[in-house]
Design a protein around this nucleic acid. Sequence first.
DNA 1: CAAAAAACATACCAATTGGTATGTTTTTTT
DNA 2: AAAAAAACATACCAATTGGTATGTTTTTTG
Lengths: 196, 196
Amino acid sequence: MTKASATRRTILEKAFEIIYTKGYQTTSIDEIIATTKVTKGAFYYHFKTKDEMGLAIINEIVKPTMQEAFIKPLQDAKNPIKEIYDMTKALLLENPFLKLEYGCPAGNLTQEMTPWNIEFGKALSELILEWQQTIENCIKSAKKNGTVRKNVNPQQVAYFIMSSYWGIRNFGKVYNSADCYHSYLKELKIYLNNLA
Amino acid sequence: MTKASATRRTILEKAFEIIYTKGYQTTSIDEIIATTKVTKGAFYYHFKTKDEMGLAIINEIVKPTMQEAFIKPLQDAKNPIKEIYDMTKALLLENPFLKLEYGCPAGNLTQEMTPWNIEFGKALSELILEWQQTIENCIKSAKKNGTVRKNVNPQQVAYFIMSSYWGIRNFGKVYNSADCYHSYLKELKIYLNNLA
DNA sequence: CAAAAAACATACCAATTGGTATGTTTTTTT
DNA sequence: AAAAAAACATACCAATTGGTATGTTTTTTG
C-alpha cells in the first residue's frame, strides 16, 4: 500500500467509526480531519465531496465487512438453520466491530440517509439485497437437504430474520443492555426450529 | 384552545412532519419557522431550545399517536394473536400518519438520537417500554384464555414482534416499496399462529 | 380603562458547516 | 537530475446553524 492510499484508508476508517457512533450528518469534515490528523487539502484531494467519502465508506468499509460477517458464514452452509442462528448470535454478542449502543452500521445509514439521498440509498440497497439473497439461498438449500419444510417461503423468512435483526439492534440502542439480545436470540431459535 | 397554545401546537405538528421525513439533525429551526410562518421570537418564546421542542414532540405528538395506534388496539383484546396481526397490518398498510418511505417515527428518533442525547433516549425508552409491556400483557392474557401455548415466553415474543416491525419499516425505506410489507405480514401470521 | 404580563416580531451574532484558492512538498517519470 | 504530476498544507469564504437582545403588539388582570 502506497503512502497516499494509506492516507485515504485512514480517512475512511476513522470517518466510519465516528459516523457509526454519531451518524453521518452530525459528523463534520473538520472533526474527521482533526482525528485523522490529515489536513483539509489532503482530504479534498482524495474525495471531491463529503458524500463521495460517504459512498466510499459504504462500498469500501461497510460492504466488505458485512460480506465477511453476514454472507460468508452462510455460504455453503451444511446446516443452514444452525448457521443463521450462530451468525446472528455472533453479530449481536461477539463481533468486536459492532457495539451495543451504536446499532447496525448499515441499518443506521439506511435510516438516516435513504429518504433524501438517492445515491446512498442505491449503494445501501445493493448491499442489503446481497444479504437478503444469501439468506434466501440458505433457506432454499435447507429445503433441498430436508432440514426445512417444503412449504416454507424463503423470501418471507429472509425478510423476517433480517428485520428482526435490524429491529433488535435498535432495542439494544435504547435500552443500552444486552439483555434484549439474549431474549431475542431465544425466540429466534424457536422460530428457526419451527421451520423444520 | 387559546391562540398561543395553537401556535405552540402548530410548531410541534409541522416540526414533527419535517423531522419525520428528514430527521432531527437536518431539520433546522429556520426551516421550521419558515413552514409554520411563526417568527423566531414566537418559537423561542414557546421553547427554550431546539431540544426542548424535540422532547415536546416526543411527549405530545409521538407518544399519544403511538398510544392510539399501538397500545389501544391491544388493550382488552379478545383474540390477542389476531389483534396483534391486525394492528401490525394496519400500521404498515393503512395508517395515513405513517409513510412507507419514512419509516417509523419512534424508530427513526431512537436510531438518530439515542447514542448521544440522554434525554431523548429516556423519553423514547419510556414510550417503547409501554408498547412492549402492552404486547407482553397481550400474550399473557392469550395464555390465560388458551389461545396461546403455556410454554410461550411473553417477553421474548414481544421483543420478536416489535423488532421485526421496526426492522421491516427500515426495509420499506430502502426498497421504497410495500412488497416487503406483504411478505413480512405473511410470515408474521405464520409465526403468530405457531404460538397457538 | 390602565397596568402588567403574555405573546409575538425583527435584527442581529458567534460558531460551525462544506468547500475553494493557492500555495508547498513529495513522489514518479523521462 | 530535471520536469511533471501526485500528494499534501494553509488560509480563507459564503452559507447556515442555534440562539439572543431588544423591541412591539396583544391579551389578561386588577
